[in-house]
Amino acid sequence: MAMQSYSAPGGIPMQDNRAYAAQSVTVSMPDQKVSDDIIFSTFSLHFCNVCCLGFGAFYNSIKARDSRLLGDFPKARSYGAKARRLNIAAVIIGSILILIFLIIFVKTYMQATSIYNQIRYPYNY
């Protein structure tokens, strides 16, 4: 919990021009840091939207931001955690699929150039 202390400058003037000393007031506020990962979710939505995981992450990020603005911090933390998990899953699965695609593309290219060279120069092999 964050503790903040506020004190009033000077005293409070009364009817008979006497001033009473102001007392400091301590306000305790709960920790309001809630991560909604909206930028990470936007990246996942546009570049790693495997099986709509990026869309789910973006949706939960928006719900986390809305809940935080409404003051419902436990629900906002829940939505934020779900958004983070979906973002991580989307990026991992998307990266694996991109890696598989690149491997297949390179192997196909190598085979195609080999076949092309065999057709073009049949007596060099």
Rank of each mutant, 00 (worst) to 15 (best):
I96K: 04
I115Q: 13
C52W: 06
C48R: 02
Q23G: 07
T26H: 07
V50N: 00
N117P: 00
Q15S: 14
C52M: 10
I100Y: 03
Y125Q: 04
L102G: 08
Y123K: 01
Y116K: 11
N49E: 12
I96N: 03
D37S: 14
A90Q: 03
Y59N: 10
G56S: 14
T26S: 12
Q32E: 13
I104N: 14
Y121D: 03
Y59R: 15
Q23F: 10
N124A: 07
G94R: 01
Y6S: 12
L99Q: 12
S61C: 06
I39P: 01
F105W: 12
S114C: 09
Y6H: 14
D16W: 13
T113M: 14
Y121T: 02
Y59G: 02
N117L: 09
N117K: 06
R84L: 09
G10R: 03
K63C: 08
R77H: 11
I103Y: 14
L45M: 08
A81K: 09
Y116P: 00
D66H: 06
Q32S: 10
Q4K: 09
A19T: 10
A90D: 07
P74W: 13
D37T: 02
Q23C: 07
V25H: 06
I12S: 02
M1R: 10
A76F: 08
Y59Q: 04
S114N: 06
R77T: 10
M110C: 12
G94C: 10
S35L: 15
V91P: 00
A57C: 09
R85F: 11
T108Y: 05
S44K: 00
A8P: 05
L70D: 11
S35Q: 12
S67K: 04
I12M: 08
A8T: 07
Y116R: 07
N17I: 03
A8Y: 08
V91K: 05
D16H: 15
I115W: 15
D37P: 00
L99R: 11
I38G: 01
P30K: 10
V25T: 13
F55Y: 06
S28I: 12
V27L: 11
S78D: 12
R84G: 01
A2C: 07
I38F: 06
R18N: 06
P122C: 02
A112S: 13
D31A: 08
A57T: 01
L99I: 15
G94V: 08
N87S: 14
K75E: 14
A76G: 08
A19W: 09
S61N: 08
V91R: 03
A57S: 15
G10L: 04
G11A: 05
H46L: 15
Y125G: 04
Y123M: 00
S24Y: 06
I93R: 01
M110Q: 11
P9M: 13
P9I: 06
D37R: 01
I119W: 10
F58A: 02
K63L: 14
P122D: 00
D16G: 07
T26F: 08
L99M: 13
V50C: 02
N17V: 03
M3P: 05
R84V: 03
N49T: 08
Q118E: 09
V27F: 10
N60C: 13
P13T: 05
I62F: 09
A2P: 01
S5W: 09
N87I: 15
